[in-house]
């Protein structure tokens, strides 16, 4: 009995973003994740690993170990990340945080520049998370990185103006971040495009939760955004950034070395990070910011399988 394959007639697609010195492309899909039988997924989901510009204070040992000799040297750390096979480096300017070193814009811009010069993959530059401070430092960082086609974030409803203006002027793309609310995600994308930055230079961040910690909220936001994108809602048709590492490594299931009924930490911790990432990949996530190199390896193995043709 011949089954008539059910293919959706999608009318629209996700914007395609180009990043970095190597012109890495993300997004551009014309169907839901991995449904190659009815559309194109021209670019695979990509990974980044995080570098801190100061030694991270709250990382568990299992996470520090692969970077043990470089934790206080962001440039060496970034190079190591490239060796580990991540598609991108995500530099987090933690030192600018008022609670830590309260580093100045010029100081962090210098670090960012040094890291960008040392690598040939795209650089993601992340502020310290304090919106006001990020609104001050990121424009200076954007200028210092002129021409490097970085992805800069996170722009929020509070600070998007200065970050967008500078990113636009110096050729970067921005991460638009809104807290777990699809309406706010859409609105922020609109506000940013109204400043003249085109949609193919915006990636949105719905503030994901980890496996077991509200993962289903961002999961459904991504599914809704992708359905919207494919049916003509352009304002959500941008790549999606998933801060998986940051969230997954807050979970006890990843961090706790010693809970016998959950089994040994090694596989458990990696699986927490990887499952969080793959779950968002099947919902429409595009850029995955992870922390452990083993997770990159595992995630890529998953994507290799998922990208295989399933045409009928």
């Amino acid at each position: 009995m011949a089954v008539t394959i059910a293919k959706e007639r999608w009318t629209s697609k996700v914007a395609e973003m180009t990043l970095g010195p190597n012109g890495l492309k993300v997004g551009g899909e014309t169907t839901l994740p991995f449904l190659h039988f009815e559309g194109e997924m021209p670019n695979r989901p990509v990974t980044a690993l995080e570098v801190f510009d100061m030694e991270p204070q709250d990382w568990p040992d299992i996470l520090k170990e692969p970077f043990a000799d470089v934790l206080s040297d962001p440039v060496a750390w970034a190079k190591k990340i490239v060796e580990y096979g991540a598609d991108m480096v995500a530099l987090r300017l933690m030192s600018a945080h008022p609670d830590w070193k309260d580093a100045s814009a010029d100081e962090v811009a210098k670090t960012a520049k040094a890291v960008a010069e040392a690598i040939d993959v795209p650089l993601i530059v992340l502020g310290c998370g304090v919106e006001e401070k990020d609104g001050q430092i990121l424009p200076v960082v954007a200028e210092a990185l002129e021409g490097k086609r970085c992805l800069i974030g996170c722009a929020t409803a509070e600070n998007y103006k200065s970050i967008t203006a500078a990113s636009n002027a110096y050729g970067h793309s921005v991460i638009a971040s809104s807290p777990l609310d699809i309406n706010l995600c859409k609105q922020l994308n609109i506000l940013i495009t109204e400043m003249g930055l085109s949609l193919d230079r915006i990636a949105f961040d719905p503030l994901v939760g980890a496996l077991g910690y509200g993962i289903e909220y961002a999961y459904s936001i991504m599914e809704r955004a992708r359905m919207g994108a494919l049916t003509g809602d352009k304002m959500l048709a941008t790549p999606i950034v998933c801060f998986v590492g940051m969230e997954a490594w807050k979970a006890k299931e990843a961090k706790d070395p010693d809970v016998p009924e959950w089994g040994p930490q090694a596989d458990r911790a990696i699986l927490w990070e990887v499952t969080t990432a793959t779950t968002f990949a099947i919902a429409g996530g595009t850029i995955f910011i992870l922390r452990h190199p083993e997770s990159v390896k595992r995630f890529n193995a998953f994507i290799n399988e998922a990208m295989k043709s399933n045409a009928y």
Binding site: L211, I215, E253, E261, P264, D267, L271, W272, T275
Partner: peptide, 10 residues
Amino acid sequence: PEHILPVITL
């Protein structure tokens, strides 16, 4: 358990 817990949680 380390392989099953993530599946059950998801």
